[in-house]
Design a binder for these strands. Structure first.
Lengths: 227, 227
DNA sequence: ACAAATTTAGACAGGCTTGTCCAATTCGTC
DNA sequence: GACGAATTGGACAAGCCTGTCTAAATTTGT
């Protein structure tokens, strides 16, 4: 009796597995081909199920699309908050800690499959489903930014940074560490590990040059110190 | 004899006007609906011509799409270089001059119709037409960034800024002055004049805090000066 | 092993879209 | 006013896609 293994609801088992596999394949196809260009037959084939199964599970192309967006939004937000939880509140080396944090943010939230897919769907179909993406807007950027801002405010309060407006600083931090990846993102590409590291390094150095306390913590600040 | 009015080439007159009107309408529809969802009948209606005229001029949905992208790329690049030509090489007030430049850049190149349309087409269809957007990549970001980097290098050489790598500084400048507009851009929206100004102001201040010579040029630097 | 539920393959209608063809009409030029 | 080119509206075939239906095959739980 392996009853313990199955969940409490009756949908047997493979039922849910297929549902997930359909949503995953749909995300991929919607991103590649756009909503109008996405073909249910292709989604079914890519998911390894029959077309009828897609309709059994999701009823409708539009409902399937909504399920995809909700799924991606949820996973992305979870990833973002999990990563923000690793923010260096008590940094040993501020520059290297912030660089490592920026790399984690990029790798786990922005460059990964879910992040790239969600971003593309928002850009392509955001205007067509206002309420769907309004939800993303509130849950995602809104809460992300204020959570990150709170972390920076704490760093400033502890004397590691000199910040006027933590919300502005948080947005600028993200903009800076992604500054050199914009073109790659624009074309839907995946930056290499080295590009991510370089962009994060350059971004954090500029960020610290602007917001860092002048304790001459690292080498780069030499140019500022000789004044 | 109004011969002087007509251009030197023989295509009568309204011919070219309709061609432009078709490309404009096509840009709008391709952006709104995506390539697959774009309907030639709708493009024709929006351009105020018959469907047959669209085919007479451009032959094909794909050729029409290419014409749209080429058109937008050309106009955007022209606008970007025209705006870079207004870069403050001999600034009177560095902060306010850079803010004004950033606002011009946003208004004339990034937020205007052509800029938003081109960005969305690149994001949505960039992977499907690699050679078409490779051209954009070389002509656009590549040349834009190095042109802007050269201007910043000159400012640094003249003693107004302290910059290690002008290419990095140029990319970070653009990232900073757009930092607060990302969400709006993502959803294809048009930021207000006030949002553009605020983002540019905050971005330039941080940029100068990082790269400015410490002559205490403005008020904001007070926080740095008391050290 | 049996019974119920799920999945599958395929056929199918209905709708929409692209691209072509054509006759009638309008437009610009001489 | 007349001529030629461009434009128009509409009909049209061909193809593709969505969503439904059915009967057979497979899987699941007991």
């Amino acid at each position: 009796m392996k009853l313990g293994v199955s969940p409490d609801t009756f949908p047997p088992r493979s039922h849910e597995a297929k549902r997930i596999s359909v949503v995953d394949a749909a995300a991929s196809v919607f991103c590649r081909e756009g909503y109008a260009g996405a073909n249910i037959d292709l989604i079914a084939a890519e998911a390894g199920v029959s077309r009828q199964t897609v309709y059994n599970h999701h009823g409708d192309k539009e409902k399937l699309f909504m399920a995809v967006v909700r799924d991606l939004t949820e996973r992305c937000n979870a990833g973002i908050f999990a990563t923000i939880a690793t923010f260096p509140d008590q940094p040993t080396g501020l520059e290297s800690d912030l660089i490592a944090f920026a790399v984690r943010m990029n790798r786990n939230c922005i460059c990964n499959r879910d992040g790239r897919f969600l971003r593309k769907l928002i850009q392509a179909e955001g205007e067509r489903y206002p309420e769907l993406f309004a939800e993303w807007r509130e849950q995602g950027p809104g809460r992300t930014w204020s959570a990150l801002a709170a972390r920076f405010a704490r760093l400033a309060y502890a004397g590691h940074l000199s910040i006027d407006d933590p919300d502005v600083a948080a947005r600028q931090f993200l903009a800076l560490v992604n500054a050199e990846l914009q073109t790659t993102f624009m074309l839907g590409g995946m930056p290499t590990e080295e590009e991510v590291l370089r962009s994060a390094t350059n971004g954090v150095r500029t960020f610290l040059a602007a917001f860092g306390r002048r304790k001459a913590p690292a080498a780069r600040q030499a140019a500022l110190a000789h004044a």
